[in-house]
Every structure is written in C-alpha cells, then in structure tokens.
C-alpha cells in the first residue's frame, strides 16, 4: 500500500474550473436577449484587462446585468453546497442542511427585521442586512444548541435536527408576520421563501466572495475532523478530535455563510442538500474530495438553475428556489430510491 494523497489532484481541479468557467460564459450569453458566445467572451476578456471593448447594448447587458448576477449565483451555489456538505458530515446525517438546522430561516428573519425596522450601518446600507442576517443565524444556532443541550447533553443528531425544524417554523412565522405589516419596505414573501438573485451587483458578489474566502477556508481546513464526525461523533472523540471545538467552528462558519447568502438571495433550498449527495456518489464520502467537488458543482448547478429561471417563462422570471426545489426534489427522490435499494 503506497502513501497517496486523499485530496483532489491538480487535473481534477482543472477540469472543474474549466467546466465552471464555461458555465459562466454560457449563462452570460443566454437570457431574454441571446448573445453570441465569441462576442461575449471578447467583451468580458477586454473588460477584465482594461482593453477597449465594443460599446453598445450587449456590453451593458453583459457587464452591468448578467455578469454580476452569474457571479453571485455561482458564489451562493458554492457556499450553500459547502455548508450542506459539511453539515451532513458533522451531523452524520445526509438530510442535514442549513434549512434543516433552522439557520436559513433565522437568517431570513434577521434580514427582514433589519429592512422593516431600518437597522443599518451608516454609509454601508447593505451591510446592516448582512450583519443582521449573520447575527440572527448565530443567534438561531445558539438557541438551537442550548435547547439541544438542555434536552440531550451529547448534542445528538436527531435532537439538533428536530429542534432546527421547529425553530425554522417559528422563525418563518415571525418573518411572515413582519412582512405582512411592512409590505411597503420588505420584498415579497416569495423572495425570502423561494429566493431570487435578480438585480444583484458586484458589491453583492464581493461580499459573497469575502465570506466564502474566510468561512470556506476554515471549513476546508477541517476536512479530516469532518471525516471523523461522518463516521460517528463518538468515534471522532475516541480518535482524539476536539469534538466541541470543531463542531462550534463548523456551525459558526456555516451560519456565517448562510447569513450572507440569505441576505443577498433569500432562502434558496435544496442546493446544499442535493449537491453533496450527488458528489458523494461521484468522488466518495471523504471530505477532502467531497467538499471541493461540492464547491464547484454547487456553483455550476445554481448557475444552470438560475439560467432556467430566466429563460423558461421568458420574459417572465421565476424565483430561483422554484427551479432548485423542482430539480432538487426529483433528484433527491431518485437518490433516496437508489440508496434504499442498496445501490
């Protein structure tokens, strides 16, 4: 038996990166107005390097509307899949996700409160929502964990998920209540329950990228610990993992990422549930491979889902969550069926 790297090899990263960049290009080209791939590439390329680009309608569509949106979608997809993958490992439960833990709903509530009651940070109007969403994601986490601790000292998987679901219903009801009373300020309820990334800007993309860089790095540095958790929490403790610290670190990073994603794009379900599932079939359950694969696949999947939401009922646009939930539930049933059959 030779010593070998368990992680991704360079060529695997390369393949994923190429597919992802092709998807970006593809998604920028298509939409209510379809553009030529070559022209689009030229516009993006020239703009990146500061070269004179052909002026016109296509340039403004590409650079000011579609590109920031596609980038945001990719970053949200990557963040949500990373969250889902790490939670499924941490809780040893293939059904775990930001939504099952109640973090997404908590983040939504925070964002809605900040908009409805005008909580903002001077000179950074958007930051108020992000900070509130992250804060509420953290608060939900603490509430869920302390409740779980009260009921079950060992913080067992089932307890956390059960409390997460209950908390999520509670948070959703308050969110709906606030939206009903201040419908003039807050976006429609469908945005918070189904999500949308239309009208996102480069500033949004920057926020998403920064959070993914910070929290994603922490999560990706804990792949061995997540492997141990995925085998079993007791087993993780027995082999010497600092169980409580790792759990805290992962949950904090997850709520940070979800907080940012929710404040930018609302609650987009199923991405974090389905993508790691699919990737586990392709690259196996080892988080050294699973998490990087989920990162790329999540980005690609959500970009395609967003494209579908833009073109299916052109010129009308569907909330992205409608597409992800539709595709997601079909794929999920398929996966579930296969795993039950012993595949």
């Amino acid at each position: 038996m030779k010593s070998k790297s368990e992680g991704f090899r360079t060529y695997e990263y390369l393949i994923f990166t190429v597919i992802m960049l092709c998807t970006v290009l593809f998604c920028v080209c298509l939409g209510s107005v379809s553009l030529n791939v070559g022209d689009t590439f030229k516009v993006i390329w020239n703009t990146i390097w500061g070269l004179p680009a052909p002026e016109g309608l296509s340039r403004s569509i590409i650079i000011t509307v579609r590109l920031p949106r596609v980038i945001c979608v990719a970053l949200v997809g990557a963040s949500l899949s990373l969250c889902g993958g790490s939670m499924q490992g941490l809780l040893r439960n293939p059904l775990a996700d930001g939504s099952t833990l109640g973090v997404s709903s908590g983040a939504s509530l925070g964002a809605v409160i900040s908009i409805a009651f005008g909580v903002s940070i001077p000179s950074l109007p958007f930051a108020g929502t992000v900070v509130m969403a992250m804060l509420f994601a953290f608060i939900s986490l603490i509430v869920i964990l302390s409740l779980a601790y009260k009921l079950d000292f060992s913080l067992s998987t089932n307890t956390i998920i059960l409390i997460g679901v209950i908390f999520s219903m509670f948070a959703n009801s308050i969110t709906s209540l606030i939206i009903t009373f201040s419908s003039d300020k807050v976006k429609q309820i469908t945005f918070w329950t189904m999500g949308s990334l239309s009208g996102t800007s480069y500033a949004n993309a920057l926020t998403l990228a920064a959070s993914l860089l910070v929290f994603g790095t922490v999560i990706l540095s804990l792949t061995r610990e997540l492997n141990a958790f995925a085998v079993g929490e007791d087993n993780a403790r027995h082999v010497g993992v600092n169980v409580k610290r790792v759990k805290m670190a992962v949950l904090i990073c997850v709520s940070g990422l979800i907080g940012v994603c929710v404040s930018v794009g609302g609650t987009i379900g199923f991405v974090g549930l389905v993508i790691p599932h699919m990737m586990r079939m392709v690259v196996g359950p080892n988080h050294k491979r699973l998490l990087p694969a989920s990162l790329f696949a999540g980005a690609i999947f959500l970009m395609l889902a967003d494209l579908a939401s833009r073109v299916i009922l052109n010129p009308l646009e569907l909330p992205i969550g409608v597409v992800t939930s539709f595709i997601g539930s079909v794929v999920f049933v398929f996966i579930f069926y296969r795993s039950r059959k012993g595949g």
Partner: peptide
C-alpha cells in the same frame, strides 16, 4: 456508519 467510507479511510482516522 452512514457513508460509504473505505476500510482504509476508517483505519487512517
């Protein structure tokens, strides 16, 4: 164990 880890991956832990 709910995920299909290989024997080697378990022992490596």
């Amino acid at each position: 164990v709910s995920y299909s880890f290989s024997v080697e991956e378990i022992v490596r832990l």
